[in-house]
Computed example of a mutant assay.
Amino acid sequence: MSAIDIHDLTVTFPDGTTGLADVNLSVRPEEFVALIGASGSGKTTLLRTIAGFLPASRGHVALGGQDVTRVPPEKRGIGMVFQQHAVWPHMTVAANVAYPLKRRGVAKQEREQRVTRALELVGLDGFGQRRPDSLSGGQRQRVALARAIIAEPTALLLDEALSALDEPLRDNLRRELVTLTRREALTTVHVTHDRSEALSIADRVVVLGAGRIQQIATPQELVQRPGTAQVAAFIADATLLDATYGTRVTAGPLSWNRDEVEFLGTADALTLAVLPSAVEVLPAGTPGALAARIRSVLYDAGDWSVTLDVLDTVFRATVRGPRPEVGDPVGMRIHRPLAYPA
């Protein structure tokens, strides 16, 4: 499969709005990359520019070393799956999947062989003569996926391709998608608004904000060392605090020695990111702990995800053991906040 190389890519819309600004990204052959960010961050704009649906105002897009910046979408050799599966209801499943090959003039016998294999790959063996209206939403999305990969694309682009599905179907298809892309050695770029999905399936995650790349990292790196305070807040639900750096790091009534803070850059003015994993919840009245109160409680895979009211600020934390109750007084300690230049 081909690499995707993007250099100094800028997209400006007709009304003057900047969709992307000086984006640089290299996706390695056979790599699975997820694009995430808040609404309006530029993730879908980037995907559609790679596909050729949006023109680049400046910069270059290359596939397999070939500059395709001015090449129309249908000549880029890309497979794409959208949020809405977009299978044609008047065609059989086999005809839907075979359509890209038919347009290329591939002989009927070869088309039939490749359709059979593509349907096997997505778990729809024997579904060729079914009509789309007889399929579930997940099955129709598998048809769209089979149609996207049958022509052996240079890259596979997924635009919120799983977001319309309900759990646990979505989880099952997510796992099958990862297996499929590995087995077929597909270079894949996947746009999703689901942070947990991005972290669970991608080799690397690209976080976008205001049309710019904020960080590119493996899921582990992204969770453990967010590149900016804003990334920490978006990815890990970190609480952000304005702080200053003198003899101690101080944020309002809170303060830490230098060796109690993890610095990701230094300045007189700092932004501290307090990850949920850095918040320790203790019994009320614990010596040296901040007085806090439980604000909300959610069950989370055997633990309790809670928010805490402390000094007019809300922190997230994980609690094990018996369920805490909203309004309960507790103690709280913050261990090793992350410090970023403000």
Rank of each mutant, 00 (worst) to 15 (best):
L186D: 02
V310C: 14
G227M: 07
H90T: 00
I149G: 11
D22W: 01
R182M: 11
D22C: 04
P324C: 05
F82K: 10
A232T: 11
Y245N: 14
Y245Q: 12
S26G: 07
A161N: 11
S26L: 00
V297T: 10
S296C: 03
T239S: 14
V281H: 00
Q129W: 00
L275W: 01
A86Q: 13
L199C: 07
A98L: 01
A164S: 15
K75I: 05
W304D: 02
L169Y: 06
G211V: 11
I50Y: 02
G65V: 09
S296H: 03
A95V: 02
A51S: 09
Q141L: 13
Q83T: 08
N24H: 12
R142D: 08
A267T: 03
E31F: 00
R182A: 10
L180F: 11
L173E: 11
A161G: 12
P287K: 03
N96V: 09
S39R: 01
H335I: 15
T45F: 07
P153C: 11
G327P: 05
E184N: 06
L208E: 05
L169H: 08
A289P: 13
A236Y: 01
M80N: 01
R175S: 15
G37H: 06
N172Q: 15
Y340Q: 02
Q139E: 15
L290S: 08
K43I: 12
T17Y: 07
V279E: 09
E184L: 15
S200M: 08
I235W: 09
A86C: 12
I294V: 15
L101P: 11
Q139T: 06
D300F: 14
R111M: 15
A229P: 10
L157F: 13
T116R: 12
R142F: 05
P341Q: 02
R117E: 15
R248H: 12
R182P: 13
V27W: 00
L272Y: 09
G211E: 06
